[in-house]
Design a protein around this nucleic acid. Structure first.
Lengths: 342, 342
DNA sequence: TTGTAAGCGTTATCAC
DNA sequence: GTGATAACGCTTACAA
């Protein structure tokens, strides 16, 4: 192992000079800098992370807590992980993983063992027990998701309320007679993630505002069979409009393809006989058959916003007040499952 | 921050005793142990990871290099990440992420900065430039995937050759007249991942052994349009058997659903008019419409095997000789896209 | 502009 | 069975 002492010796300077050359925390004469950098280069010196963390009280690591709980969504967490990891690397930080099933201890472990300088906590529930723990840690925590009580933490998320509203707005203003929302399956409801109710609220508000017939049905799960059950109910519920132009809103990404397939099997062609709007990443929407009109989840934007706050915090730059909730605006893209306006 | 000194003081013992109580590396009297554990409990002591790593030369961290390169597969990496993280936690280790696009420097960084004690490198290419670097690191590296030259490294992967063979075997022995393999899209071929050629070889071998008509067609990409192009070619290629019972093999998980959909659009029902066998996780197979007969990718088994080797290495337990390639056997599950034998 | 030296919080080697 | 104490490799006052 090559240490900064070796570099110092080779460059004919003191160890601290090597350190200062690397950190840039004090001015160095061009000549000295050159010699040190050359020595670093020839020896292939890389500073020992543990020693650096110990001395500087900074691990240069971001803790990322991902929702790998049994029965968790899992679809769509990858873009978050990817974007967060890349943002971290841009600021010369690393990412250490923890899983949701470690619960609150996972958070204290990351923080108290000084394993990381900040934590990103994904997919927080409405009354997530980790929130109160998170607020008391010695490292800043950024939430992806919005709990009922943000308790002085920073939150970033998609604006699900707006997404719900936009979905119904779109249907109401394109001459649909009724809207049925194929809700989240029971296990997602049970996890009580806040975005569910926010989306539903937005949809309900919009339906009320437009005075359009509106109903919600809940599938037991996101399987093909689950979609069938939900659709049976949705289609036999003509509502006040009675058999008119129907718009289906499907907020669970996993349920979209099964729903489309079930409709086709019944001889109902999305985009010809009824409309379907999904809530999913654009990438997912492009690959359903037929490509579904969607409100984007924007995981990359959400992640970037979270990392931006995080590094402003770490660099002691100005940040908005804690408890701030940053909401990312979803984008509607019309694809093949939209009925054209009458 | 509470340190082991605080614990020692409260328990009325020396700092080293605290350390030994925690590590169990020397015998401690029951009474002393009790007092120390009590102190640890009341103070909520957690050892500083950096200090521990520095003193013990062990970071208790596993580096995981994931394929987040532009255009990489991305489908199916999540179960690997999940399983590897959980295996690591079971052995009281953490996981730090690096992305493929960091290339070989990513590996040297993880190793030379003593950020981790071992590295798991996912989805290595046939002539992956990282292999030679990996072999020279001061930490052990386990590959998921099989390069042309394993160069003294350990490799774990699905047995793709066997998968290819099993797919064609299944079709040949259930009275099909010809097999068309819808190959990997150009960008996957360009990445030259070894499993592609292994799968093809297995398929070709089996076709030759059974004397069944066999052809390969390559889709431009995994979009719906890509599937259409490939199918146009596959279906207008009657082969020696001329329009008999056709079996389609689809090794790219992303291409399966588009292919099924394209077939349905042409009025060809998989399981009634022809067979389709996919290579994908069981979870994916269950959720396609219709559920596709598949050879499982077994990401969890592959990950566990990799982690088992890794920890045997770290614990200096007996391990097979380096360059060992552990292959996991794929499992065939017949679902709705299999023609019954005539 | 540069060097000296005191930590950072563990682990592990000696002693007893 | 337990206690001093010297590393581990780096950062950062404090001096010069």
């Amino acid at each position: 192992m090559v240490t900064s002492r070796d570099v110092a010796r080779l460059a004919g300077v003191s160890q601290s000079t090597v350190s200062y050359v690397m950190s840039g925390r004090r001015s160095i004469s061009p000549e000295t800098r050159r010699r040190v950098e050359e020595a670093i280069e020839t020896l292939g010196f890389q500073p020992n992370a543990g020693a650096r963390a110990l001395a500087s009280q900074r691990s240069q690591v971001i803790g990322l807590v991902v929702p790998f709980a049994p029965g968790a969504d899992m679809t769509g967490v990858l873009p978050f992980i990817e974007t967060i990891t890349k943002c971290a690397r841009e600021e010369d930080h690393n990412v250490i993983l923890a899983t949701e099933d470690e619960g609150a201890e996972g958070l204290t472990r990351l923080s108290d063992q000084s394993l990381c300088d900040a934590i990103v906590l994904m997919e927080v529930g409405s009354k997530d027990p980790r929130i109160s723990v998170a607020a008391g840690l010695s490292v800043p925590v950024i939430l992806i998701g919005v709990p009922d009580d943000p308790a002085g933490l920073y939150c970033v998320d998609l604006d699900y309320t707006l997404a719900g509203r936009l979905a119904v707005d779109e249907l109401a203003t394109s001459a649909h007679d009724r809207v049925v929302l194929l809700g989240y399956p029971r296990d997602v409801m049970a996890r009580d993630v806040n975005f569910v109710r926010r989306f539903l609220r937005g949809a309900e508000e919009s339906a009320a505002a437009h005075g359009i017939a509106y109903a919600e049905v809940s599938p037991p799960d996101t399987s093909r069979a689950g979609a069938e059950v939900a659709l049976d109910e949705a289609l036999t519920e003509p509502g006040p409009g009675g058999g008119g132009r129907l718009g289906l809103v499907v907020p669970d990404p996993q349920l979209i393809q099964p729903t489309l397939q079930s409709l086709l099997d019944r001889g109902l062609v999305p985009g010809r006989d009824l409309s379907v709007i999904g809530l999913c990443t654009d990438r997912t929407a492009e690959t359903t058959t037929p490509p579904v009109t969607n409100l984007s989840l924007e995981p990359r934007d959400v992640s970037r916003r979270a990392m931006r706050i995080l590094f402003r915090l770490l660099n002691r730059e100005s940040v908005p007040a804690p408890s701030t909730v940053e909401l990312v605006t979803p984008r509607l893209t019309r694809r093949q499952t939209s009925l054209s306006a009458r």
